[in-house]
Structure formats: C-alpha cells, structure tokens
C-alpha cells in the first residue's frame, strides 16, 4: 500500500491505462507539456508522446465532439475539461450526442469515452471556478456519472470508467485533489461503477453524500458520536446509476435520512435520493427527509464570507444530524 493524494491516484490510473491499452489517449487544454493545470498528466508527454497526450485548441465543443468521433472509430479518448465551469460549451456533444449515440443507433455505436472534469468549490474559485455540474449529467439517460471521494476510489473507478464502453462523466472534486490522502494498493485493481460504499456504519441517522462533502459528513459523524449519536455515512461514489439498494438498506435500518451535497438544492441529487426513500422506504421513516445542500444561487461567490455561507461544513452537517436524531 502506498499513501497518495487524489490527484496522484488519478495520475496513476491514467498512466496505467495508457500503458495497458494503446487506444487510450488524453486530450484537452494544456494537458501536454504542462501536464494539465492540476498536473493530472504531468510527465505523460515524455512517456506517451504528443499524439496520445494531446494539447487541443481552446474550444470545448470540439474537444468533446472530436473525442466522440474518435470513440466511434474505436479509440478510448479521455477528454479533460480544464474546470467544470467550462464544460457548458461542450454540453451538446455530451448530453445531445454522446449520451444518445448508442440508443440512437439501436445499439450499433459504442462510446468508450471518459470525460474527466475537475469540479466543486471551497477553493475561493468564485462563480466561474467552483461549479457543481453533476445534476445536469445525472438527469441524462445514457451517461454514467462517477464522483470518487478518496484516492482509492479515484483510481479504481477511473480505471473502470476508461474500460467501460459507455460515456462516463468522471467528476473529480478539485479541493480533494491535494487535501485528501489515502492508501492505494500497489497491485492492479479496479472498482465497479455503481455500488455506493458505507464509509461509516451507524444506527440512528443515515447521511448520504459524495465527493468533498462526504468527508465533511464523516467529520460530522465523528463529532456527534461524542454525544452518543450513531450516524451512518453512505458515500454514493457513483451518481448514475444510483445505488438505491445501499441507500434503502441504510434508511430501513436508521429510519432517518439526511442528504448532503454542495450542488444547489433544487433539482439536485438529493431530491432524487429523497424521492427514492419516500417511494420505497416510507414505512421505515421516523422523521422528515432532510437535505443540507448548496443554496439556490448560481454557485459559491468569491468572498470568503459568502463562500462559507454557501458550503456545507462539518459543523452545519453535525447540527442537522443532531436535529434529526432528536426528532
């Protein structure tokens, strides 16, 4: 086991997959000589050359359209969106085209493409370097949406995404890149896309989250444990498909459900998880389903005070767990 950061895990997964399969290649803005703005592909150009570590013009729609076309030919492209905030120009190629290429050809075409997107806030990124973009992709049939929270998951899930024949939106929370460290096996491994993971077992309240805020949930669960409250933390890991089995199992056990995410509350993942619990675990619920999510403003503003007001925190999560536990 080696300890590494999330970005190191991403880099390691990419490198191993590019070594394993010549059809795998990365493309994006500044991914070549610079190694990407977050250094996900640092040093790759020396190992794989400029064709497989391709610097593209600054043009997201074409990055995605070209990746898609290359996937049609049987390549396994990994386009990188420099920051999630800049994915919008390419959204037609993702939601309009990639997501329905298999369906719209009655199964004739496959789209083995993994779109890597650094996302999320808490890094003083303001309105245009902090966005959570997951809800839109979550809403789109035909896509897979993956949101790892730890180095172990980032590596194992990214390798699975690259080997998958469906288009995968791979969301890497950029605050976790260097903040979150963890053990990663030395030997080859993958993690399946789909299953959630119970990161902390508990019996009083189920807390469902993903990405950076999952870590805040763990911190909150540790805090409330001192007061004798036992919170179970479910890390979704994959948003699409949603692991309803793990969520329902936990809710049936605890009878109380809190969903935490950074993304705006309205129409977010939390709304779907809440609907799932209401539909399928109604008889087990002992309290109203609670959501602690980003407020409905475009994203977190730049000023520290406003960013803090936007982000869920271990403290605000702990307070919400206590409220539910006491209900």
């Amino acid at each position: 086991m080696a300890e590494m950061t999330v970005i190191e895990a991403v880099r390691s997964a990419l490198h191993e997959e590019m070594e394993r399969d010549e059809r795998v290649f990365v493309m994006g803005e500044d991914v070549g000589q610079r190694g990407g703005v977050f250094l996900a592909t640092q040093g790759f150009i020396e190992d794989f050359g400029p064709q497989r570590v391709m610097d593209t013009p600054l043009a997201e729609a074409s990055i995605m359209g070209i990746a898609l076309g290359a996937a049609f030919r049987g390549m396994r492209p990994i386009p990188e969106v420099q920051f999630s905030d800049f994915v919008w120009p390419s959204v037609n190629q993702l939601i309009g085209e990639a997501a329905r290429s298999h369906y719209g050809t009655n199964g004739a075409l496959k789209v083995p493409m993994t779109v890597r997107i650094p996302y999320g806030g808490g890094i003083r990124g303001g309105l245009f370097h902090s966005q959570n973009v997951e809800a839109l992709f979550f809403h789109t049939p035909g896509l897979l949406v993956v949101t790892p929270s730890t180095p172990y998951e980032a590596k194992g899930l990214l390798k699975s995404a690259i080997r998958d024949d469906n288009p995968v939106i791979f969301l890497e929370h950029k605050k976790t890149y260097r903040l979150v460290r963890g053990e990663v096996p030395d030997e080859e491994y993958t993690l399946p896309i789909g299953p959630a993971d119970v990161k902390r077992a508990g019996s009083d309240v189920t807390v469902v989250s993903y990405g950076l805020s999952m870590h805040y949930c763990l911190a909150a669960a540790a805090t409330v444990a001192d007061d004798g409250i036992s919170a179970e933390v479910v890390d979704l890991r994959t948003l699409k498909p949603l692991d309803s089995e793990t969520i329902l199992e936990s809710v049936q056990k605890t009878g109380k459900l809190l969903i935490v995410h950074e993304d705006n509350i309205s129409g977010g993942i939390g709304a779907e998880v809440a609907a799932l619990a209401a539909d399928e675990a109604f008889e087990y619920l002992d309290a109203p389903i609670a959501r602690l999510c980003g407020p409905d403003v475009p994203t977190m503003p730049f000023a520290q005070s406003l960013e803090d007001a936007y982000m869920p925190s271990p403290e605000s999560i702990a307070a919400e767990i206590r409220r539910l536990a006491a209900y």
Binding site: S62, G65, I66, L68, R73, N92, Q93, E97
Partner: peptide, 18 residues
C-alpha cells in the same frame, strides 16, 4: 447521430483522428 446542425462536423474530425 444528430439533428443538431453542425454537431457532426467535430465528430467526423474525431473519426478521422481515430
């Protein structure tokens, strides 16, 4: 794939790249 006017152009270029 598409009815979206011009969406096929970048895809064709990607196909050629492949």
């Amino acid at each position: 794939i598409s009815n979206v006017v011009a969406a096929g152009l970048t895809q064709s270029v990607g196909y050629a790249l492949g």
